[in-house]
Design a protein around this nucleic acid. Structure first.
Lengths: 337, 337
DNA sequence: GGACCCGATGTTTACGTAAACATCCCGTGG
DNA sequence: CCACGGGATGTTTACGTAAACATCGGGTCC
């Protein structure tokens, strides 16, 4: 910076003013400084800036994995929005989904140069961890029920599940079977709870839950069990991948979709239009979740206050070809064949 | 730091020595300092450290999108490996895949606190951009043919494609049709080139290429066209998603897989086992690519030298149920029906 | 016409850390 | 018993920036 100042024939403070876009620099001076910067290839040193200002213009993101569509799409949206706001994103993968792993990530983040943190993970681990955040570092949590302690942004999982189940009931199905995600997952839990509530409110039988682990493989196994269940005509899978597995299992067992069995997924993966048949599913707006996270976090950072509470991003049901009215009622079995 | 020093009854320099694990501090002193640190909740300020040392212990990752499986898995591996080496990852999304977008990202990175950069993108844009890297910042490029200018790490795309095509020829197919990715993609280009080469070397007819854009939807459209081609008994899709679309199109047109038509994909997505039928595909080791990137970059950072050249990570063909010998030769059409 | 004011620019200083150098003290060997 | 050496610790300084304050000069108002 001193070199630039010398070349431009001004003081380093004026250079600083120009580089920060400070007002009060006459146009002719400003142009000289800019020319000198270009000539010397000057780049402001962000470490020195951060040291001086005490803020880093950086947001940390803590997560377990990027391999799920939801996480990678959310992170992508977070990164895009942050970039637009002039913030950088630092990724903080947690090696193992254990208490130590999470604690370790937070400790490292504490030493790190971030003004705020976005946490994308199952919150029961957050519960277990004694979170000691560096003072002045704000947090927003995704996919969690920690709304009483931290600001939370999430898809409206419950409403999406309700729409899915109601759609199947409206088509005339007596009840809906459910392939759920892992027990530790809050998303999974909320989808299952909404499914159960709708059935109970409608006075329908609540069939036993089939548990998967989000993978297509686990959906396939669950699908094989459901295919053996003659009364099962409607299945709500907690995500699209498991729905894909269910479709394969039903196909293998000769149960036609949607003629004999209807299937609904959750996520609306880009591929869902190419499943056999194209999948009716609940669309999640991951991009909006990401934007809201960044927005909420920056608001906190600027205002220095964190208000717990949950922001819900709406979901919409996308009806494709995997759902239809059930076959003829069991009173006249095989009447349609 | 001064507070810690005061509480521990030592100088701030001794505190610094303890916090950096410097030798030459007597055990009893060290313990006192550590106790004081804990009591005051001291955390080293990374901005000040970076300013003093001139290095940031941070790696920047430039990419267009996280929505492709390959990119998100690679980034995940990069983040994990970097964390293990004590480096943080800063994400740098490029808004638009244009020259300006790329240039903008590099400019911002120049002002950013990174010791090295990993670029994940189609390199013909790199070509067009006049890359002015901040001095001392190293680069590794993924998925590119810039091996003459930068170190490159990539999956061995060509070999994977060769294995796929040879597998189909070995099964007895007369030739193999290809659904390729977008023209701008180097991965796509290399897979297509290897496909063509194998066919030519085997003296087979090279059918016209069907072009897709990586999406299942585009694979579906290509599949519809191929389904109308009676002589087409073997299809190599440049990725699994397009293969999924092809499978759907063939199914809709009543062409059975693999009895009538064989299909091979590329990527080995986790879902590929649940396609109808489970997909034969080329497995990519994204995790290894990520590890190599970080490893190579850190080596450069430590040695201060960059050696252009390409590191290839091997691929393996995973044979599942979407490939089989062709139906009876056209000399006796329909003889098997 | 002079006091005052305000905009443009310069000077000083501090942010938190760690390298370089200085100092102190104890043990050892001649 | 003293000089010397080396390990432990303290003091000084600089990293690049920007806030706070200082200065300077020209225009405005009474």
């Amino acid at each position: 910076m001193a070199d630039v100042a010398r070349l431009a024939g001004v003081s380093s403070q004026t250079v600083s003013r120009v580089s920060t876009g400070h007002p009060g620099v006459v146009e002719s001076t400003r142009r000289q400084v800019l020319a000198a910067m270009r000539e010397l290839g000057y780049r402001p040193n962000s470490a020195a800036r951060a040291l001086k200002r005490g803020t880093f213009h950086t947001i940390g993101v803590i997560l377990f994995t990027l391999s799920t569509t939801g996480n990678s799409r959310t992170v992508e949206a977070i990164a895009a929005q942050a970039a637009q706001e002039g913030y950088a994103i630092t990724l903080f993968p947690v090696a193992a989904p254990t208490q130590d792993g999470v604690l370790g990530a937070f400790t490292r983040l504490g030493e790190l140069a971030v003004d705020g943190i976005i946490v994308i993970m199952e919150v029961h681990l957050l519960d277990a961890v004694n979170l000691t955040l560096p003072p002045g570092v704000q947090v927003v949590v995704v996919d969690s029920d920690a709304g009483d302690r931290y600001p939370v942004v999430d898809t409206d999982q419950a409403d999406g599940a309700r729409q899915a189940v109601r759609h199947l009931l409206d088509l005339g199905h007596a009840t809906v079977w459910h392939v759920t995600g892992p027990a530790e997952s809050f998303s999974s839990e909320r989808r299952a709870m909404a499914w159960r509530t709708v059935l109970e409110e409608a006075g329908r039988v609540v069939p036993p839950v089939e548990r998967g682990d989000w993978s297509a493989e686990s959906g396939y196994r669950a699908g094989l069990r459901l295919a053996a269940e003659p009364s099962c005509t409607a299945i709500f899978a907690a995500n699209d991948q498991m729905a894909l597995g269910v479709l394969r299992a039903l196909h293998e067992r000769g149960r036609r979709v949607p003629a004999e069995v209807s299937v609904v997924g959750f996520d609306d993966l880009p591929d869902a239009t190419a499943y056999l048949p194209p999948l009716t599913t609940v669309h999640q707006d991951f991009a909006e979740v990401g934007r809201r996270c960044v927005h909420g976090l920056l608001e906190q950072i600027r205002d220095e206050r964190a208000e717990p509470g949950t922001v819900l991003v709406p979901t919409t049901l996308v009806v494709r070809e995997s759902t239809a009215p059930p076959p003829a009622p069991p009173a006249h079995p095989d009447s349609r064949r």
